[in-house]
Amino acid sequence: MKKDNHDIAYFLTNRSFVTWVKNPNPDSNYFWKKWIENNPQSRESFYAAKATIERIDFKKANVTEKDKEEVLNKILQNSTSKEISFEKPQKRIFKLHRTVYGGVAAAIVILIVSVSFLNQYNNEGVKESEIKTQSALITKTAERGKQKAMFLPDGSKVILNAGSSLSYYENFTGDTREVTLVGEAYFDVTHNPEKKFIVKSNGIATVVHGTSFNVKAYPNEGPLSVALERGSVAVQSLLHKSDSTTIFIKPGEKIIVEEQFENSLVDEFNYIEEFGWKDGILVFKDAGIEEFIGKLERWYNVDISVVGRNDHDWEINGMFKKQSLQNVLESLEFARKVKYTIKENQITIYTDLKN
């Protein structure tokens, strides 16, 4: 299977990559050298982002937390807008020519500012006047049809998938940084060995110090899963105090949590299947009709009903990058011999049609 071609936004918002470019060391040099050897299709974006970061002055930005969050959401909107694209992108050799900058200037400026904001936040920290007691519980929500990006009080970056919410206290105090997730989110956690970062969802705790990972925990839609991009995490059960089992996963591994926690499955994962949603890629892997409908309703902000039998073991597979809802439904119509109608935001799928 062809590996994903990461775009410039991926690198410019990747804390580990930015830190390496600004402050390389033998370990990070080795990591990124091996990374680009294993992902040659991303070489163009890799070196474009590196050249951009090397030209940034990170000390001039003076912005608020709200400013950083707004810029991050602009980047997300640019990279995940659901436009219809029928042509495959052509290969291009990266050159810092004026014509190249002309085509991506606006996006590059936004990304540069975003990285500058992020670095400024990490270097200067929170001013004394902004420090408050841990009293207010904040809940951020990504509505159906949208994704939401944010920074947490410690500088950690979170991207919420559509139909998800994240709750946390206004300021992390004590010896932990705890958040509660409903739905799906990507976390890029600021490293702090003194304060564990804990994601609680569906009776499971994912414990980290500083890393990037994806947690999928939509209610009534399959088992909870955690996929690790880099670093290390420990996954624990919160439902049974007598169960002291802790399962560790490594980069490139995913845990699928079973009802009996000790029987949870750890295996390798496909990057696009787990993280592609951040880049506007809708992925189905052996999806049943309930999972298929749930994803479409969140992704496109529609309501879907089924006329006819809906107990088929459909095992739907497909990958749709920035495609319209109609394109996805036409693929379903062809693959499963069904029909559909669209009336405003109401979709009806007709099954059991006679050939």
Rank of each mutant, 00 (worst) to 15 (best):
L282M: 10
T141V: 15
K74C: 01
D286F: 00
T99R: 11
P223G: 05
G318T: 09
R15H: 08
A49N: 09
F58N: 07
S212D: 12
Q120W: 05
N5P: 00
L96T: 06
T341R: 12
N202A: 11
E344L: 02
K285T: 12
V338I: 15
G231Q: 06
Y121A: 14
N301Y: 08
K322M: 03
K95N: 07
S114H: 13
F320A: 09
E130S: 10
Y101H: 11
F58G: 07
E258Q: 14
N23H: 15
G222R: 09
E262W: 00
T133M: 05
E221T: 02
V207E: 15
D279C: 04
K295S: 06
Q236M: 14
P153K: 09
N192T: 04
V100Q: 06
Q90G: 10
L353G: 04
R336N: 11
D313G: 09
V158M: 05
N73H: 02
F275V: 06
D57K: 13
V338H: 06
S167G: 04
N23C: 10
D67E: 14
D352H: 02
I316D: 08
P193N: 12
E143Y: 05
A205N: 13
E291M: 01
N345C: 03
D4K: 03
F275Q: 05
R15K: 12
Y169S: 02
I316V: 14
A49R: 08
N301I: 07
Q147R: 12
Q134K: 14
G174V: 08
E44N: 15
M1S: 14
V189M: 03
N263V: 01
Y101W: 12
K140P: 01
I293N: 07
K66N: 07
K278T: 06
I131Y: 09
N214Q: 11
E291G: 08
R92W: 05
I293W: 05
R177Y: 04
P223S: 13
T176K: 13
A217Q: 02
F187K: 05
D286A: 14
E143L: 13
T173L: 09
W314C: 03
